[in-house]
């Protein structure tokens, strides 16, 4: 018995003779490869199919009229199933953005630094993630008006990646007065787009 509280509780391990004196293992690599065949769900599938046609589908909350994109099947503000799909324009404004100086694997076409942004489509109540290009990164700002730049028609697939990036339209910036919670009473979607 020892008084040392950190003393090992088990006796020291005695290695068999054939393992004595061999180099100790310093690290173990346990690589795993798992394959998944995911299904996107009914509402997201409609969104992805529309993407192939260069259409952006959202869905409208049956009680508040808010428009969510991409569609998830329920609205977060009512918990109700959404049934009405809404086609949204491919224009909007930057509500938030982030400048990144490390590359995305598989996107060698992106010049560093690149800007990922939360783009609020005209008529939508929530943002939609994308890349902003065609403008120096240090000129991207909140309220910047942007339009989708789609991949060439022959490259279109059932994916949101069909929007290659969002480019400035040259229109006057949207003035973002204040940040408000989605679902705040008395705030229909269009009200947030106050032109400067």
């Amino acid at each position: 018995m020892t008084d040392d509280p950190l003393a090992p509780v088990a006796p020291p391990v005695q290695l068999p003779p054939r393992l004595q004196g061999v180099e100790a293992v310093q690290s173990v690599r346990t690589p795993f490869r798992l394959e998944y065949h995911a299904s996107s769900g009914q509402h997201m599938a409609a969104f992805l199919r529309a993407m192939k046609q260069k259409q952006i589908l959202g869905e409208r909350c049956p009680t508040t009229g808010q428009v969510f994109v991409p569609p998830r099947g329920v609205t977060p503000t009512s918990g109700l199933e959404t049934t009405e799909l809404v086609e949204l324009p491919d224009t909007g404004y930057v509500e938030s953005f982030c400048i990144t100086r490390v590359p995305i694997p598989g996107r060698d076409d992106l010049e560093l630094p690149y800007v990922s942004a939360w783009v609020v489509l005209d008529g939508a109540s929530v943002g939609f993630i994308g890349l902003v290009a065609g403008i120096p990164a240090d000129e991207v700002r909140l309220g910047l008006r942007v339009k989708a730049v789609w991949r060439p028609d022959e490259e279109l697939r059932e994916t949101a990646d069909n929007i290659h990036h969002w480019a400035p339209t040259g229109e006057a910036d949207v003035r973002i007065a204040s940040y408000e919670l989605i679902g705040a009473p008395g705030r229909p979607p269009a009200e947030r787009q106050v032109r400067a």
Binding site: G41, Q42, H43, R72, G73, V74, G79
Partner: peptide
């Protein structure tokens, strides 16, 4: 379930 997790669980929660 061909539905996604949200669609799968919303009716159970309801």
């Amino acid at each position: 379930f061909d539905e996604n997790e949200i669609e799968m669980m919303a009716p159970v929660i309801e």
